[in-house]
């Protein structure tokens, strides 16, 4: 058993647990976007940053991938963390203005407006990569992936064409935190018939 502290509360963890997992076990909330229990953590969204303190020395780490260690002193809310979160939310608000989920979550952390210009009002994908990880790790087919890099990064099937590898299971839609995948899935699985639902 590893013993450490989160927000001055004594916690215990098994080797191999992450700080986030331990915190959740103790009911301590840490926001996440790119984390999902079904897939390996990637530590990409940086909302789950927590501060480690030791005397004067402090450091921010992503709790979803930071392994629990003996004697850690973890804080889940601090000025430094708030600064990181605030800017991420502000940037996401301007980057993916179409996502209600992001607006709600940002508001929960006190960010309701953004200083940045909105680029594409229709954009709702936050590039968390959950869909691609689920497709690869859970479904095992790699029908979608990220393309390009940096600001040009996009999610989709190869060449943005319907992909035969897609088994149309919809796992990517289920895992998507913003609903962006729901609007893209038809580009991956190919066209559906017009009458999508009717009772017999």
């Amino acid at each position: 058993m590893l013993k450490f502290r989160i927000n001055d509360i004594d916690v215990e963890a098994e080797p191999g647990w992450t700080v986030l997992e331990t915190a959740r076990e103790y009911g301590i909330e840490i926001p996440t976007l790119c984390f999902h229990e079904a897939v390996q953590a990637s530590g990409a969204c940086r909302l789950c940053m927590v501060e480690l303190r030791e005397g004067d020395w402090t450091k921010l780490v992503a709790s979803c991938v930071y392994p629990a260690k003996d004697g850690l002193n973890v804080y889940t809310e601090s000025e430094r963390i708030t600064n990181v979160r605030r800017w991420i939310f502000e940037m996401l608000l301007s980057e993916c203005p179409a996502s209600q989920e992001i607006r709600d979550m940002a508001a929960k952390y006190g960010v309701t407006s953004t200083r940045f210009a909105i680029k594409d009002p229709e954009q709702d994908c936050i590039m968390c990569g959950l869909c691609t990880r689920v497709c690869a790790e859970v479904v095992g087919v790699h029908a979608i992936a990220t393309q390009s890099r940096g600001v040009y990064k996009r999610i989709g099937s190869p060449f943005m064409k319907p992909n035969e590898a897609c088994v149309a299971c919809g796992s990517c839609v289920s895992v998507c935190p913003t609903g962006a995948m729901a609007r893209r899935i038809d580009l991956v699985r190919g066209k559906m018939e017009e009458n999508q639902t009717n009772a017999a």
Binding site: G170, M192, Q196, T197, N198, A199
Partner: peptide, 17 residues
């Protein structure tokens, strides 16, 4: 007894059914 169809990406239609 009845049979219905549903598309995972059309929850609105599903709810109506």
């Amino acid at each position: 007894i009845a049979l219905a169809h549903a598309d995972f990406n059309n929850p609105e239609g599903f709810v109506k059914t």
